[in-house]
Each structure stands twice: as C-alpha cells, then as structure tokens.
C-alpha cells in the first residue's frame, strides 16, 4: 500500500520560532525522495511537522489528496504515515516483540515479515530495548514503523552513528523495502552518497528553505553543484 504526499508552502517551527519557511514538496505513490542539507537545515523539523509534532504556522499537507495538517499525530500515523526518528526512541523496558506489539495496526506487516527483513531481530525477540546495540535499535525502530503498515515512510538519518558493516546491512534492508514493499519513502540523510544512491528525487534544504529540487541523477552528475549545496569538502 502506498500513498502520495503533497506539501505546500509549509511554515512551521517550535513555538514562535520559525524553522521551515515556505517548504513545498510532492512525492508520488511509491516514489523515493532524499532530503539533504547540513545540520540545522530543518530536515528533522520537516518530518516532525509532517507528523504534527511542531507548531504549524501555515501551509497544507495532503496525503493521498486528503488534508492531514489539522489531525492529531496518532491519526496521521493511523492513516499510514510511518516515522522513524533520529533518536530511534525504542521503549527500553519492552522486549523486541512488545515494541512491535504496541505499534501493530490492522493491515500492518506481520512480525514474520519484518523478521525476514531483519533476521538479527528475530534472534533478539525476547530481549528488552535497553539491551540492544545501536544497530539493533535502529532495525527495531524501522520494524516498529513497518508493523504499523505505513503508506509513506519517513526515515530521519537511519544510518547515523552506526558501524560501517551495520550501515551496509541496514542500507540493504532499506533497498529491499524500496523495491518490494511499494511504500513511498522519504529519507533524510547526511551520508550523501547513500542518499543519492537510494532515491530518485532529491531536495536540498538550507536554513528552512528549499535551495534545490530535482532528480538525484542531476546531483550525482554535477559535483560542483553538490559542493555548492552541501559544502562537501569544505571541512
């Protein structure tokens, strides 16, 4: 199951502080979109706004043609907006199975399906959240979103802070979801190479505004553009 997302002229932030200033984007059903930008550009705020966790000052959010910007967070999740936050936010006192059980919604992935995707989690199904490694927690965070049956999956820097081998494993899993599940996927990522290899379309944020919107192929081909937008190598 999949759905489209249309965001128009979004102005939002935390309380009176405005972070996003007129962000518009469109994701067609089953498409993949990479959100790029430096730290503090507004990537996380964008996801939080889509979920209804920020203060919305203006703009509209349509999911499958339906306005969701006035809905409470849990209703958006139930409509099929899956969100894997940067902090992972695994429930530390719950086991892997229980973390999945509390997030399961009708029409979501059955546990066997997420365990097929993440065999490591299947072995740890009775382990509590506080005893999982960083990589396992990230897998569980993604699995927890999948058992909710998302039509659109928001992934906030899922590869951050993990060992290279774990990053590769996770990336494989993300590719498998992209190719087999037909879910619309929106990925915010600092690892530009992975993001560009993953998504068809890309969007670059800078100080809450969009400075680039186009095909990832364009960005991949034009290194000068990459440099200018993402300041690669400036360090």
């Amino acid at each position: 199951m999949t759905s489209s997302l249309e965001v128009d002229d979004l102005v939002s932030g935390w309380g009176r502080t405005v972070v996003l200033n007129g962000v518009s984007l469109t994701a067609t059903p089953g498409s993949t979109l990479a959100i790029l930008g430096r730290n503090g550009a507004g990537k996380t705020t964008l996801f939080a706004t889509l979920m209804g966790l920020t203060t919305l000052h203006g703009g509209t959010i349509l999911m499958g043609g339906r306005a969701i910007d006035a809905l409470p967070t849990h209703r958006r999740a139930r409509l099929g907006l899956g969100y894997v936050s940067q902090e992972r936010e695994i429930f530390s006192s719950l086991t892997v199975m229980e973390n999945l059980a509390v997030a399961a919604l009708p029409g979501g992935w059955p546990p066997e399906r997420v365990f097929a995707l993440f065999p490591l989690l299947a072995e740890r199904r009775r382990t509590t959240g506080n005893r999982l490694s960083g990589g396992e927690q990230q897998m569980l965070a993604i699995a927890r979103a999948l058992v909710g049956g998302p039509k659109i999956l928001l992934l906030d820097e899922p590869l951050e802070g993990l060992a290279p081998i774990v990053v590769e494993n996770l990336f494989e899993a993300l590719l498998a979801i992209r190719d087999n599940a037909g879910v619309t996927m929106i990925l915010a990522e600092q690892k530009v190479d992975f993001a560009l290899a993953f998504a068809e379309d890309a969007l670059v944020l800078e100080r809450g505004c969009i400075v680039f919107r186009g095909r990832t192929a364009e960005l991949r081909a034009d290194e000068a553009l990459q440099h200018r937008l993402l300041a690669i190598g400036e360090l």
Partner: peptide, 14 residues
C-alpha cells in the same frame, strides 16, 4: 509502559 517512557513516540506510532 510506552506512554510512560515516551508519549510523543507512542503518538507517532498511532
């Protein structure tokens, strides 16, 4: 248990 630990996350999973 999840709500006690992180109500925002619980909302975000529906």
């Amino acid at each position: 248990d999840g709500i006690r630990q992180n109500p925002h996350r619980m909302r975000a999973i529906g």
